[in-house]
């Protein structure tokens, strides 16, 4: 039976190290070129200009008004609703009514960021309902308040 023996005479078996930096560079350049930071945003589909105007029942609309001060008012409430409560309220209404349209109405001089915060809460309400097994189509409408 053949026996494996170490080859006599240590033949210097070296892995070439000189090319290691080349490989490192290649990787570096590859990742620099291929890396793009994703853009995060809240997507929305605007209504078409040519689309017909539909009448909807008042009961199927929930108004979330962002006032000039940046405070939020729901429907025709005179007291502002804190942002932290908005999501819960939207969820309640959405769970009750599958035809509910969220109408985000904003004062022309209200800060854009405050409207986005409200929109974020509305989106989260949809998301949380979705994970709870309540499917609702996103019916969100953006509107600017008419002010005289």
């Amino acid at each position: 039976m053949a026996r494996f023996r170490r080859r006599s005479g240590t033949s210097a078996e070296l892995v070439g190290e000189s090319a290691m930096s080349d490989v490192a560079f290649l990787l570096l350049v590859f990742f620099i070129v291929s890396t793009t930071f994703p853009e995060i945003g809240l997507p929305l589909i605007l209504p078409s200009k040519s689309g017909e105007v539909k009448q909807v029942a008042r009961t199927n609309v929930m108004q979330v008004v962002t006032a000039r001060t940046g405070l939020y008012y729901i429907d025709i409430a005179t007291e502002p609703t804190p942002l932290s409560q908005l999501r819960g309220l939207v969820k309640e209404r959405l769970a009750d009514n599958d035809k509910l349209i969220l109408s985000l109405e904003t004062h022309p001089e209200a800060p854009y960021g405050n409207m986005i915060e409200a929109l974020d809460e509305v989106m989260l309400a949809y998301e949380e309902l979705d994970t709870a097994g309540v499917k609702r189509d996103k019916r969100i409408s953006l509107k600017m308040l008419d002010v005289e």
Partner: peptide
């Protein structure tokens, strides 16, 4: 933002996103 969106509707560019 509202005026810009009205112009987008005219251009039939209806998919928007608000970067955050």
């Amino acid at each position: 933002v509202n005026e810009s969106m009205e112009r987008l509707k005219m251009a039939n560019a209806l998919r928007v996103s608000f970067t955050t």
